[in-house]
């Protein structure tokens, strides 16, 4: 049996060095809420673990136009942060619907994203907020928009030697309205059947740069760009909301699975986008 190794990274650079050294063999461990499920179910038997819990990636900072969140920050800390509630309340709201308190206490935003699930709840919030991710490796760092990050179910643009260092969220501009809903099989401790996050900056009542993000209805979390574009420069009206909701449903590409059917997901997306836009316009 190959020797198994455990490392506690004290800073992101050390983690990058280890990833470079062990290549694809190394797995990052933060909260472990996804990783350890896979380990327990024998889908994964990591040879090298790099623990990020003490790597200095647990922070929430305000940096000029952006809110910057370290990738290993647990959900509970993000939810409870006044800075987040002030500058990105949508993110705090979305996180409050993830799993349950015990999972949020250790589950991290970086882990949620790196896992690459189409149903990753934090991803819909970040998509709607126009966030980007700072990825680092021994070779250097790069910044990718969240919509560029996901490439397929369980797949992201992360290289095996790369890690997410931080999440960069543009601060809320002016009168940004937002709304979120998630449908699961029940009200807590549940994965999304569908989820919708909308960020809608209003300028004199007109939508300026609306972002409508959809979760669990495509191979990755997606932005419903056409549904947003329809609203650009316009005041929300019942007819317009209807049109946008239909466009959002068209943008989805859901599948049938253990949590719901494609038919239902499409319908639910339309309903949720309609309800949320109505809520925003009210």
């Amino acid at each position: 049996m190959a020797e198994r190794q455990f490392f506690k990274a004290t800073d992101p650079q050390e983690a990058c060095d280890l990833l470079a050294q062990y290549g694809g063999k190394a797995r990052l461990l933060a909260g472990g809420t996804d990783l350890m499920v896979a380990v327990n179910q024998r889908q994964l038997s990591p040879e090298v673990l790099v623990y990020l819990g003490d790597s200095g990636l647990n922070y929430i900072n305000s940096e000029s136009d952006n809110l910057v969140i370290g990738a290993a920050t647990p959900f509970t800390d993000i939810m409870g942060s006044n800075l987040v509630r002030e500058e990105a309340p949508l993110l705090a709201e979305v996180i409050s619907h993830i799993a349950s308190p015990a999972i949020r206490n250790v589950g991290t935003i970086g882990g949620n994203l790196a896992n690459g699930s189409p149903a990753a709840d934090s991803a819909t919030a970040l998509l709607a907020l126009g966030a980007s991710l700072k990825l680092v490796s021994k070779a250097g760092d790069r910044v990718v928009a969240v919509e560029e990050f996901f490439t397929g179910p369980g797949e992201t643009t992360l290289e095996p030697t790369e890690l997410i260092q931080e999440v960069i969220i543009p601060k809320k501009a002016g009168e940004a309205k937002w709304a979120y809903r998630k449908l699961g099989k029940r009200k807590a401790q549940t994965l999304s059947i569908v989820s919708v996050a909308i960020c809608c900056p209003l300028d004199g009542g007109q939508c300026q740069g609306t972002r409508i993000a959809l979760g669990a209805v495509a191979p990755t979390p997606i932005l419903a760009s056409e549904a947003s574009a329809l609203l650009e420069g316009k005041i929300l009206s019942e007819g317009l909301i209807d049109e946008s909701a239909k466009a959002a449903a068209d943008a989805s590409n859901p599948i049938d699975d253990v949590r719901g059917s494609a038919w239902y997901r499409r319908r639910a997306i339309e309903a949720l986008v309609r309800q949320l836009l109505a809520q925003i316009s009210a």
Binding site: T33, M36, N40, S100, A102, I103
Partner: peptide, 29 residues
């Protein structure tokens, strides 16, 4: 359940509620 879904394994770690079934032991160091 061993998948973090049921909560019967809950313990407090540094005062916070965690699922011990999906907590890597070494992270309790």
């Amino acid at each position: 359940c061993n998948t973090g879904d049921c909560g019967t394994c809950s313990v407090l770690m540094n005062g916070k509620l965690v699922r011990s079934c999906i907590t890597n032991a070494l992270s309790a160091q």
